[in-house]
């Protein structure tokens, strides 16, 4: 019995590692597909972009050549690449030379986590609750009106909705600050002043993210619950005379399980959305740094962001799979 759980876990872990390896190989290969010396190409793009001073460019070039391992055989480049990764060394940023990529990411990542994770959990809970409610009243006016509205909300582009929210509540009504993460000059810490100021800045992006994502969860939960309500075991429970609310509870339980898996699959999508949203709100997280890396073509930084986000997506999916294995008896005991 426990052997099964172990086998399931082992499979998930192997799958996660394989997926990560796949991305590592991809990110290693891509720049090296550029004909000629990739470092030359990547740095020259930087030169075209920003009129940096020649000495700096030279230093950057040398550092980059060394980290890239230009001239070494490909397999040696790869082992170096992996060894650096294992040490947590993601290279040196070009646009913020000589700061290390890992240092920069450590500065920005926590803010994104603080925004994204609560927003995902809250929208998941609210959306599922709403979905069951609509499924319960399926076919009624409530369903016919709310469902198309939710479908529409589900299609509003994150970043545009963010712009509209910012315009209405910050620019026009002035309920919230017009962006940024916390007031300039405050230093992050666990003191009253900072926390209140942070939450004031946090509220609008958080609500935007929650409102937008709730629609999708509710729609998914509605159709899952309706599907389960039409299943054979609900019919049997109904025929046994069990009350309507009990049937709904059974359907809800079964419908929740796939929603747990969806949580993992949707994480990536929401992550992408929240990066864009951060841009609009000037929220200092991974979104801002991604945009900066892209607009300066800071390749080591882009690569670092990519690796960290890929690892996050894979790790979240692994955790979700493990949780799923624990809550679904069909996996737990066979």
């Amino acid at each position: 019995m426990y052997l099964n759980v172990l086998r399931y876990l082992a499979r998930r872990v192997v799958f996660a590692l394989a997926a990560f390896l796949f991305f590592i190989v991809a990110i290693f290969t891509l720049p090296r597909l550029i004909p000629g010396n990739p470092v030359d190409v990547l740095v020259s793009r930087l030169v075209m972009q920003a009129q940096a001073n020649p000495e700096l460019i030279h230093a950057v070039h040398r550092k980059f050549m060394e980290e890239f391992g230009v001239g070494l055989p490909l397999w040696k480049q790869f082992t170096r690449f992996v060894a650096q990764l294992l040490r947590g060394d993601l290279g040196t940023s070009i646009s913020m030379y000589p700061r290390k990529v890992s240092e920069i990411l450590a500065l920005f990542l926590p803010w994104t986590v603080a925004l994204l994770i609560p927003a995902i959990l809250v929208s998941w809970a609210v959306g599922n609750f709403l979905g069951v409610l609509i499924a319960w009243r399926r076919g009624t006016v409530l369903d016919r009106v709310i469902t198309p509205i939710l479908l529409t909300i589900n299609r509003i582009p994150f970043y545009w909705f963010a712009m509209v929210m910012l315009f209405i509540f910050a620019v026009y009504l002035r309920f919230f600050p017009i962006g940024d993460t916390y007031r300039w000059g405050l230093s992050p810490g666990l003191n009253w002043n900072f926390v209140v100021n942070y939450l004031h800045h946090y509220a609008l992006p958080f609500l935007t993210l929650v409102v937008i994502s709730t629609g999708g969860w509710a729609i998914g939960m509605r159709s899952m619950t309706i599907y389960e309500l039409g299943s054979d075991y609900i019919l049997f429970a109904d025929l046994l005379g069990l009350p309507q609310r009990r049937l709904l509870a059974y359907a809800f339980r079964s419908a929740c399980l796939p929603q747990v898996t969806e949580l993992g699959l949707n994480f990536g999508l929401m992550l992408g959305g929240s990066l864009l949203l951060e841009l609009v709100f000037n929220y200092r997280g991974m979104g801002s740094i991604t945009f900066q890396a892209l607009s300066t073509l800071d390749y080591p930084l882009i690569q670092g962001i990519f690796i960290v986000l890929a690892a996050a997506v894979i790790a979240v999916n692994l955790v979700v799979d493990i949780v799923y294995g624990l809550v679904d008896p069909r996996i737990k005991v066979t």
Binding site: Y233, F236, A237, Y250, R330
Partner: peptide, 17 residues
């Protein structure tokens, strides 16, 4: 009156003992 439906093989709740 009790009915054992044609779909009895799937009539038990998958997540409940």
């Amino acid at each position: 009156i009790a009915l054992v439906p044609q779909s009895a093989l799937n009539a038990l709740i998958p997540t409940r003992k």
